[in-house]
């Protein structure tokens, strides 16, 4: 067939030289390569004792952030649920009562917020959609559980604890040269 471009280079050589025909050199050079690897640094990681360093923007388990005063940021606008291609997020909105100002930042909040971790594909579109800096993905992994129901994470698992704040500042740097 005529070549279609000028860039083709025929490269495959199937003729063996005499040295290649007598198996032995190839076998010994192969053995030598594998032998060298005995003395190289081990590439495996002994998880869970030792953990692989992950990128700051790793897309793992979600967190619902609180603001500096410890109030929940989520206003149950539902944009994350709309953006979710796996339809993993559900929420119920509620109005903030008097006396709850220290709990919720805005007048509306999510009374229940659930993510089904079995449905979630960790694509990060919810994080991208959130207009309130409320939902972020973190570098934590979702733990194994025994039952399917335990994978439906409610607010008790998703909202960050006031005494264990999760740093997401690195994720918010979109443009660092």
């Amino acid at each position: 067939m005529e070549p279609l471009t000028t860039r083709a280079s025929r490269v495959v050589n199937k003729e063996m030289t005499f040295g290649e025909k007598i198996y032995l050199p190839a076998i010994f050079s192969g053995m030598w390569i594998t032998l060298k690897h005995f003395f190289k640094k081990n590439n495996t990681v002994s998880y869970p004792e030792e953990k692989r360093p992950v990128a700051p923007i790793y897309r793992g388990q979600h967190v619902l952030k609180r603001d500096d005063e410890g109030r929940e940021r989520c206003t149950a606008c539902g944009l994350c649920a709309v953006a979710c291609p796996a339809e993993a997020i559900t929420m119920v909105a509620a109005e903030r009562e008097k006396g709850e100002e220290s709990l919720y930042r805005e007048e509306k909040y999510a009374s229940t917020y659930e993510i089904n971790m079995l449905r979630c594909i960790f694509c990060g579109l919810c994080e991208e959609a959130c207009p309130k800096e409320a939902i972020f993905l973190t570098d934590r992994l979702v733990d194994a559980e025994f039952g399917r129901n335990e994978f439906i994470y409610g607010k008790e698992k998703l909202v960050e604890k006031t005494d264990q704040r999760i740093d997401v500042s690195q994720r918010q740097i979109w443009d660092n040269h």
Partner: peptide, 15 residues
């Protein structure tokens, strides 16, 4: 995959 992780945060299903 480590290089992917730095640009998008995932390794296999990169999006």
């Amino acid at each position: 995959y480590d290089i992917y992780e730095e640009i998008c945060g995932a390794r296999l299903t990169t999006n």
